[in-house]
Design a protein around this nucleic acid. Structure first.
Lengths: 233, 233
DNA sequence: CCAAAAGTGTTAGGTTTACACCCATGT
DNA sequence: ACATGGGTGTAAACCTAACACTTTTGG
């Protein structure tokens, strides 16, 4: 293979903003950095792009290494490229955000990486421009969730409507009317009511629902308007 | 400065999908490639990222070199990274799309680059994965224009409502009801009616409008819903 | 005077919001 | 029996879409 002459080759990294929901609040999966410099400081999960990998592959590898999970929802967020963003060497980083069902992932939290789920409020300091990346990811998540049923990716297979509302309220840091919320959600036809109830969060119990995968895939790109007054956000 | 050891450094390019509107239809600014291989084949405008440049800077430089324009609307589209996407050498390319007022740019079309405005229907073959980039850019433009007043960036300072509708109809390849369209558009409060009329396109003449820059900036990120039945698209 | 494009109003249907009470059950 | 959270209905305001006729003027 020939090459382009006299051009600068640059390190390319992938960083993943991994959101999870524990039923109460939104969390981020962070690690304590393993290499010097800045060893021990909090950081997003990431890695350098390998010779024969696409960015999508790279992001999937990063996630799989850390969580063991595959087939997780992931989306390219943005390519960050300020020349001095990495203090060691010039690196551009393409950030991806991932949504994972925190329940499905209770395994070893890869001791090896000192990974932890950290509440989105009160994040610790992060290295480089990772804080900016997280801010962008939050913005994008809010934007997208206002229009598309993306937040289901954060929930387990079976979930209740109050749980779902809780999640939306967490993401938008507001309270929604439960009558309007459940009507809107159910009217999409995306949910299939189950016979069983979740009895953990109330005495009466709340019915479980499952996603109708077929309709979910079909309507994923439709504009659905789950939250009231979206222009407030 | 120290460096990361044993990591692969990769060529990083910036490619720009430049949309323009000539009053009739949407066009793309393409060039005939200057370097071998594939010399003379149609290509997006692009360049390699320089040592001390951010991607945003790189994209702005590319655009400025070709058109002489600055301060143009631009947005990062996506980082394309298939290992074999460039047949010469592995390169990742971060694509940006730009919207420019074709009138404001009637100058030399930089003979030097063999640039041309090409109609979006019936594009020629493009090198590498540039066709895919264009397809993504079209998708993004439609998506975004359904929600935000982004298409004004393609119009001259003064424009008429029928011209604006024309543009929307071009982007969505459909016809909209002019009564509903003008009501929606005017109800945003974004437009300021001028005294003068455009008499080129009709005998009666159509009033010119200008953007209220203040309100435009304020409402740019609001959800505005300019087109009917957005879920059709 | 005619063709061509601009401009404008109404109504019906649907969607969104605000709001309050009853239900089931574990303690 | 009571506290807790789950579940449901209605009416008013608003928004969207469908639809047709009049105006202006250059040729």
């Amino acid at each position: 293979m020939s090459r382009y002459l006299k051009q600068t080759r640059i390190l390319v990294a992938v960083d993943c903003i991994i959101f999870g929901f524990d039923g109460q609040e939104l969390k981020l999966l962070l690690i304590q950095r393993g290499l010097e410099p800045l060893k021990g400081r909090w950081s997003l999960v990431g890695g350098f792009l390998k010779e024969n990998e696409s960015l999508e592959d790279g992001a999937a590898h990063v996630l799989q290494q850390l969580t063991g999970l595959q087939g997780v929802y992931m989306e390219q967020l943005y390519a960050f490229s300020k020349p001095d963003r990495d203090s060691v060497e010039r690196t551009i980083s393409v950030a991806y955000f991932a949504l994972i069902d925190l329940d499905q992932y209770r395994q070893q939290l890869s001791e090896e990486y000192h990974a932890e789920w950290v509440s989105l409020r009160g994040l610790p300091d992060l290295i480089f421009d990772h804080k900016e990346m997280v801010a962008e990811a939050k913005k994008r998540l809010r934007y997208k969730a206002a229009l598309h049923p993306i937040l289901f990716e954060l929930l387990p297979d079976k979930f209740t409507v109050p749980q779902l509302q809780n999640l939306y309220e967490g993401v938008y840091d507001s309270l929604f009317d439960k009558r309007n919320f459940s009507r809107k959600v159910l009217s999409t036809g995306l949910l299939v009511k189950q016979k069983s109830k979740d009895k953990l969060n109330s005495k009466k119990g709340a019915f479980y629902y499952k996603l109708d995968k077929r309709k979910y895939n079909a309507k994923f790109h439709s504009f659905l308007n789950f939250i009231p007054n979206p222009n407030k956000f």
